[in-house]
């Protein structure tokens, strides 16, 4: 619509309350298919450098704040090795 670049921090950025995510990985269940890493739409995961019991490198969290709790990793993981939950603390801020 208007300018080509929007540079300000929106005035409502503190009011917008997005649920905060916690990513849980059960390393030893992982078989190393990397689906979650590849398909996470926010690129919140990356490969770790520690071998697990199954002899593969399971994922680790790259940036938890990027996770939007879409749950795609949970759905895509063939071995039930990853899931996300909503972080309960520090949810009540002023605003809507």
């Amino acid at each position: 619509m208007v300018p080509r670049k929007l540079w300000r921090r929106p005035l409502d950025s503190e009011q917008i309350k997005l649920p905060k995510a916690e990513i849980h990985i059960i390393p030893d269940l992982c078989k190393g298919c990397d689906f979650c890493i590849e398909f996470c739409p926010r690129k919140a995961l990356e490969e770790s450098d520690k071998l697990n019991k199954r002899g593969v490198y399971p994922p680790k969290v790259a940036d938890e704040s990027k996770c939007t709790l879409c749950g795609f990793c949970t759905a895509i993981c063939p071995d039930f090795a990853i899931f996300t939950t909503e972080k309960k603390e520090e949810t009540s801020r002023n605003g809507r």
Binding site: M1, V2, P3, L6, W7, R8, P10, L11, D12, S13, I16, L18, P19, T68, L69, C70
Partner: peptide, 15 residues
């Protein structure tokens, strides 16, 4: 919806 960006209509003053 979990994704936010600055709103063009408000010239980025709102989300």
């Amino acid at each position: 919806c979990p994704v936010t960006v600055p709103n063009e209509f408000d010239i980025g003053l709102a989300t």
